[in-house]
Amino acid sequence: MISNSQLVNKYFRHNKKFPHIWCPGCGIGTILGNMLRAIDALALDKNDIAFVSGIGCTGRAPVYVDFNTLHTTHGRALPFATGLKLARPELKVLVATGDGDATAIGGNHLIHACRRNIDITTIIFNNYIYGMTGGQYSPTTPHGDKASTCKLGNIERPFNISQLVEAAGATFVGRTTSYHTLQLQNIIKKAILHKGFSVVEVITHCPTTYGRINKKGNAVDMLKWQKEVAIDKSRADKMEPKELEGKIVTGILIEKQLPEFCEQYDNIIEAAQNLKNSKPGGSK
């Protein structure tokens, strides 16, 4: 496996300032690093990768890495990526998005990208909070937990992102945590290879906001929690729903093959051109 220093030499932009902007212990850097390892293991050409993000702490990931990088507006990474993918189907398009970015302001785009089954890999960095703006509750903040805009406890019920995207039609859904780095690499690898819309939900930690206000300890404590609550799908499948309460099932949750959007559009082009050529005087 590629070492950290090789990773830095090969994939980082050498004119960017390091250390990066994320807080000590923040899981975003860990997820980014393991995403790069997955890309390295697949031996993809850097020129063929487009890395797209929205706004938030997560959204700052692309600027550091030496791909075609696009840092868009809050919640909109997926429609930007959709246009790019259609224009350049040969590109591997990866999207990095936070839980707020993906499921609040960008929720509509997320479900429609799932439904369309366009070949984009979306990694959702789920830290249960709006990190960048200082810790307001997000659509995944657990019921009862605190945030700067719900200091007495969240009265809204959270989304289960993996279930949400499954219901919306994603053809590949994987979930893991920033503790389970090997599983993370493995799932991202498979997600990239999957032909169709793939979502990787990564449970991660924001020690600075969510951790602090909910007294979850530091990054180390939060990683220990991830280790405890995660349960692999192969084991979870054999367990009763009651035993699974409070657990987070990890692994590849959904993997199926359905017609991909760009490929289907190529068929439309062919059909439209045949139609045009068959029409009398239809060369216009």
């Binding site: 868009t72 909109r76 246009g83 790019l84 259609l86 224009a87 509509n108």
Partner: peptide, 28 residues
Amino acid sequence: PANGGKFIQMEDEIGSIAAIIGASIGGC
């Protein structure tokens, strides 16, 4: 499509302009 180009109906106008920006960055 008859001219080899592409059309997509997005979920809203925010997505529509986002998609044309993405496509323009892709060279269209």
